[in-house]
């Protein structure tokens, strides 16, 4: 399992993909099982931290999360923002794809982290108000 530690919100990349050198921590051997987490009162800083972490997991793509993300469940679907007309109406055609990118929030050994489920990449969230779900 890959874990990318965010130190001072800076994540290092080397070439293609996520860096997995000395910053990588394997959860194998840890006694604590990861448990689903939530953030009941999302502060502005928490939201920014989550969006920064998500952006890292999406290789720098901009992402917007809601003010209540992870307040009731530990997973969230994220997808490309649909093109809209001047009135805010979506002008894309039918969506044929099924699977979506899922981000999930976890607590493990007292630490909170955000995971991109399809790649298993994770980013640690320092001082986020995570609680066990």
């Amino acid at each position: 399992m890959k874990l990318i530690i965010l130190t001072s919100t800076v994540l290092l990349f080397l070439g293609v993909g996520c860096m997995h050198t000395h910053n990588e921590i394997s959860t194998e051997g840890n006694t604590g099982e990861p448990t689903p987490a939530r953030i009941t009162e999302l502060s502005t800083n928490d939201k920014k931290m989550l969006q920064d972490a998500a952006r890292t997991l999406l290789f720098g793509r901009k992402i917007t999360l809601s003010n209540t993300v992870f307040s009731k469940q530990n997973t969230v679907f994220v997808e490309r923002r649909s093109k809209q007309n001047e009135q805010g109406k979506i002008i894309d055609g039918r969506q044929r794809e099924i699977a979506a990118i899922v981000l999930s929030l976890w607590l493990e050994n007292g630490e909170c982290y955000l995971q991109r489920n399809d790649t298993k990449d994770k980013v640690k969230l320092n001082n986020a108000g995570c609680q066990s779900l």
Binding site: R61, K62, I63, T64, L65, F77, V78
Partner: peptide
């Protein structure tokens, strides 16, 4: 239509919208 790929590849939480929570 067309849009910059950088814009197309921006993401959002499914079903979320930015603004004031009003649909007009």
């Amino acid at each position: 239509f067309a849009q910059p790929t950088e814009e197309f590849e921006s993401f959002s939480e499914t079903g979320s919208s930015s603004g004031y929570g009003i649909n007009w």
